[in-house]
């Protein structure tokens, strides 16, 4: 069996101490939460951190809270808890849709929301879903806390704006009157997305007042389709518009070929799934389950 190379192990007992440890160990340290992205990479020896800072003990990061007009999701919330959360299901069906198709039940029992975002894997579903929702991330470092708009969070594949000694502590999403959905094509249940798309629509008097479109696994800049969002804003929430938004989204992403599919197929799926997600969101806005 593949096994990781040796490392120092530290168990953080508080956020502050985790940051202290990160500061002390420097760039060769990695935070480990659920470990379901990091440990396989370490087993393959693609990652060989000198130290792991285990934040599984930080119960204060494992809460889902309604805080004023925002939903606050702790970075250590497990996928299974996000999926099971009634408040998430009620206000953010896009997250519930996404969580249903992230890996499998056992991985969801262990993997965390914060870990998924910090991994910045181009195929990670939550990055697109939270980007569609325009979530705000709360990071804590030696100098205290700062907030980062999720669309400013990702620098590229496996790269975020977090500093070495900074820890993602919370994800905040505004609770607004919007409808949302997430649609994914996978080769098999539990596989990473071939392509997936998330859609968020705010509709007022038959007009789209705000739109969010997240794209997974197609090389979309910051996981979103901004031109498609621009197109939708101010338009009518109808099938024709959704199809055009899908077409625009498919043009502004940059998929690459791999064993999940060739470029033309992925581009086609980007359009198809964007359209489907938008339709599903609009149906939900009408009170229909989709």
């Amino acid at each position: 069996m593949q096994v990781p190379a040796a490392f120092q192990y530290e168990r953080a007992t508080s956020v502050e101490q985790a940051i202290e440890l990160l500061t002390r160990y420097g760039p060769e340290a990695r935070v480990v939460a659920g470990g379901h992205s990091l440990l396989p990479m370490m087993k393959l020896r693609l990652a060989q951190p000198e130290a792991l800072i285990d934040i599984n003990g930080l119960g204060e990061l494992a809460l889902i809270r309604v805080d004023g007009h925002e939903l606050a999701i702790g970075a250590m919330v497990r996928h299974a808890d996000l999926l099971a959360s009634a408040v998430v299901g009620e206000h953010f069906p896009i997250l519930r849709d996404a969580e249903r198709v992230i890996a499998d039940p056992l991985v969801r029992n262990r993997g965390t929301v914060g870990g998924s975002l910090c991994q910045a894997d181009p195929s990670e579903d939550l990055s697109a879903a939270f980007s569609a929702l325009r979530a705000t991330l709360v990071a804590q470092g030696p100098g205290g806390r700062r907030t980062i708009g999720i669309r400013d969070f990702f620098l590229g594949p496996y790269e975020t704006v977090l500093d070495e000694a900074e820890l993602l502590v919370e994800i905040r999403v505004p609770i607004r009157s919007h409808a949302s959905a997430y649609r994914k094509v996978e080769r098999r249940v539990g596989d990473w997305a071939v392509v997936a798309a998330g859609a968020v629509l705010e509709i007022s008097d038959g007009v789209v007042t705000e739109a969010g479109i997240g794209l997974t696994a197609v090389g979309a800049r910051r996981f979103v389709a901004e031109r498609a969002e621009d197109f939708l804003r101010g338009g009518r929430p109808d099938d024709e518009g959704f199809a055009e938004a899908g077409r625009i989204a498919s043009q502004e992403c940059r998929p690459t070929a791999d064993q999940r599919g060739p470029v033309d197929y992925k581009r086609h799926l980007a359009a198809e799934l964007t359209t489907r997600a938008l339709r599903a969101a609009a149906a939900r806005a009408e009170g229909q389950e989709a």
Binding site: R187, V194, D258, Q259, R260, P262, Y265
Partner: peptide, 22 residues
């Protein structure tokens, strides 16, 4: 018959499945 293979076949441009998809 992965989704990509089926879709491409439906487009009349089948994939060769034993080699890397390009």
């Amino acid at each position: 018959l992965t989704p990509a293979a089926v879709w491409r076949a439906a487009q009349g441009r089948p994939l060769r499945t034993d080699l890397a998809i390009t």
